[in-house]
Amino acid sequence: MLDSLKILFHQGKQYIPDVTTTDVPGIFRGRPVISDAQVDETALVDLCPTGAISANPLSIDLGRCAFCAECMFACPQKISFTKDYHISANDRGALVVRAGDNRPIVVDPDKVRAEVKRLFGRSLKLREVSAGGDGSCEMELNATGNVNFDIGRFGISFVASPRHADGIVLTGPISENMADPFLDAYNAVPDPKILILAGTDAISGGIFDGSPALNRSVLDGLNVDLYVPGNPVHPLTFINGVLDMLQRKNR
C-alpha cells in the first residue's frame, strides 16, 4: 500500500490545467497558413497525395489533408503549418484554408442546433464507431480520457452502448463491410443525436478515397455536427471542437 502511494506521488501532476490554451510539444502540424507568394501552384496540386490542395487561390482542405508536410517542405515560402490545434468546424467549408487567410477555424455558433447546446451542454455521452480506421484516431480518442487530457472533467465521456449515447463519433474511411454496422449503431442512438466525423479518413476517405472497398454513401442525408480533422486527430483538437460545439463558454 505504501509503495503504491509512493508510486502515485512520484508521478507528480500530469493533467493539463487548461486544455483550451495549452501549448503542444514539438513541431505539431495544426492549422496551415498560406502566403501570397507567387509560386508554381500546379506543382503543389500535383504533389499533394490526397488531393487536398487546389489552385487559384491556393488552398488546403483540412478535410482531405494527410498532414504529410510535403507541401511545406516543397514550398516553405508559400505554406507553413502552425501549432494551432483549434481546427474543428461544424461547416465543412470552414475546413478549407485559403492563401491570405490567417484567422482561427471556428465552430459557427449560428449553425449549432439549439437542442445540442440545451440537452448536451453539461453532459455528453458518445459512442465511437471505427469503420476502416487504422487505430490511430481510435487511440487518440482513448487518450482524450487519460490522466493528461481528462475530457471527463467536462462531463464528456465515451460509453459502450449506443443506447446510452447522445451521439456517434465515426473514424475511418467507412469500409463497405462496416457501413451497415455503423448505420445500426447510429440508428440505435435515441433522438436528438449528434454525429462527429473524426479524422481525415472519416471526413473525406483520405488516402483511401475512391477505393471500391468503401461505402461512403451511408453518410448521405445524415446531419454532421462536427468535423475534426487530423491524421490522426489530436486529442486537443477533439476536446476543443466538442467544447465549442457545446458552446461551453466557461469550458
Binding site: V24, P25, G26, F67, A69, F81, S136, P232
Partner: peptide, 15 residues
C-alpha cells in the same frame, strides 16, 4: 509518443 511529435510533428510518426 510526444517524442515522435517533437521529431516529425506526429505522435504516431506519420510523415
Amino acid at each position: 509518443i510526444n517524442f515522435f511529435q517533437k521529431w516529425c510533428g506526429s505522435r504516431f510518426a506519420k510523415s
